[in-house]
Design a protein around this nucleic acid. Structure first.
Ligand SMILES: NC(=O)c1ccc[n+]([C@@H]2O[C@H](COP(=O)([O-])OP(=O)(O)OC[C@H]3O[C@@H](n4cnc5c(N)ncnc54)[C@H](O)[C@@H]3O)[C@@H](O)[C@H]2O)c1
Ligand SMILES: NC(=O)c1ccc[n+]([C@@H]2O[C@H](COP(=O)([O-])OP(=O)(O)OC[C@H]3O[C@@H](n4cnc5c(N)ncnc54)[C@H](O)[C@@H]3O)[C@@H](O)[C@H]2O)c1
Lengths: 219, 219
DNA sequence: GATGCGCTGTGATTATATTCACAGTAACTC
DNA sequence: GAGTTACTGTGAATATAATCACAGCGCATC
């Protein structure tokens, strides 16, 4: 997908694994580890050493040939790759059970994302404050959004008219959407969408329970 | 991974897409559509028609050559593949903000999963009832679990001693874990783990915002 | 019942991802 | 300062996934 100046490509699968690497690197850093070898890090994230080296090499060369990789340095580099070395504001649509759990979740901030504005459609919720953030009416979207400079939105609302909400978000300058609503939505040009579907993960697990990582599969 | 009697393999990526297919098939079914062509379904899930046909063919042949695929039939077949044609009980560990959102979420039941038991460690929560389910103390895990015949657990608890909790779940007969805790856990032999990490999805989106589905990428 | 159309299922092909395996080298030893 | 060790980065090889492209068929039409 993306390309480094030197011409190397970086695949989305690599980017996904990068999140894992960073997560365990944070743990190592907390434990005071300064350097780590590819085989150690690979072991921790359950990936082959060769793959880890290739992933890291795909955006430049960082390993010291006999000390391994510098933990803190690598954390910073990956954060820059993600653009999360500085906190960025995101919008939340829907302050229901899930939306409020997200508002009280501190894990986002730790990873560089700050839910800065909240919107809902339920009159009962407008004006209320959740974890320090006031809930606005969805009809004020265009009026309120520019105050916060957000490029990403999290959808945790109802399923009705979802696509038109997405289109509207696109027109209002949102470039990426994290979608928790179990409906297929279509990105407008230049917009990125990631769906989160717990049930799908459960289905995968259930499939694995039946047919195993191991083999023979009968209908 | 898995193999059909005829010897065909079915890959995990196919299984993941199968969840998508089923989701839009449900929509079609609700709208009264009886049959659908591969190119229509493919368009709805944003996948190539050839891939869709191959995915479906990978667990047997189901398309009528001139009517396309029978919508309802296909829903049933995919459900059987997942083992979600009958409701299965799952356990929830942790009745915090996220855990309670999951308890009140009806989407699981619609997809064949029923959160049947809840465990927490916080004395204040033990004995309380959330969405009809009583919360048990985690120390009673081994005593209570067998009553419910669960093979899958959802982790929405704190991060302390997580791995030993996982090991304990394994010994208590849990075969699959859906893990919301942002720590790397290691499956015991024969156990399957799926991690849900919202922040990782946000990181991916943020990366895409910076470097685009389009190309040139500079450090 | 012959003709044409447009579908599915799949062999063949191409593209992508992963692993192998090793050249090159920093650090450490004596 | 020569020898040894164990690492990284990466071409080459392999494995896996996606796409192409078409044979073969059911159905509609005449
Ligand atoms: N609760 C969960 O654990 C969970 C899990 C997975 C997916 N989801 C999905 O996430 C979404 C939210 O789930 P929930 O449990 O919080 O539901 P909820 O009913 O508790 O909350 C939905 C909130 O969205 C608001 N809303 C509805 N339409 C809106 C709109 N057009 N604009 C702005 N706000 C709007 C509602 O007023 C409500 O406050 C649902 O689509 C659900 O399917 C929830
Ligand atoms: N809230 C979110 O939106 C969100 C999002 C992503 C991930 N997570 C993760 O999910 C987990 C739960 O999040 P939360 O917001 O519900 O936190 P929370 O603090 O509200 O709830 C955690 C609950 O787990 C219980 N608990 C802790 N240790 C336990 C143990 N060993 N056994 C049983 N119960 C135990 C606590 O008593 C508490 O009730 C956390 O690890 C969090 O990082 C949460």
């Amino acid at each position: 997908m993306a390309r480094e100046k030197s011409g190397k490509k970086i695949s989305l699968q690599t980017v996904e694994r990068m999140s894992l690497y960073r997560k365990v690197l944070e743990d190592l850093h907390r434990d005071g580890v300064a350097n780590v070898y590819s085989h150690q890090l690979a072991e921790l994230v359950r990936v082959s050493p060769a793959q880890l080296r290739r992933d890291l090499a795909s955006f430049g060369s960082f390993g010291n040939i006999s000390k391994g990789y510098p933990v803190y340095q690598l954390i910073l580099t990956i954060s820059r790759l993600f653009g999360t070395d500085t906190l960025q504001n995101v919008a939340l649509i829907g302050a229901g059970n899930l939306g409020r759990a997200l508002l009280f979740y501190r894990g986002f901030e730790e990873r560089g994302f700050h839910i800065a504005v909240v919107f809902d459609i339920d009159a009962e919720k407008i004006g209320r404050v959740f974890a320090g953030r006031r809930c606005h009416h969805i009809q004020d979207l265009e009026a309120v959004l520019p105050d916060f400079g957000v490029a990403m939105a999290i959808l945790a609302c109802g399923a009705q008219n979802l696509q038109s909400l997405v289109d509207r978000l696109g027109r209002a300058g949102i470039r990426s959407i994290l979608n928790f609503v179990p409906r297929q939505i279509h990105a407008v040009a230049g917009m990125n969408v990631e769906n989160v579907d717990f049930s799908a993960k459960m289905e995968k697990l259930s499939f694995l329970n039946r047919y195993g990582t191991a083999l023979e599969f009968e209908i």
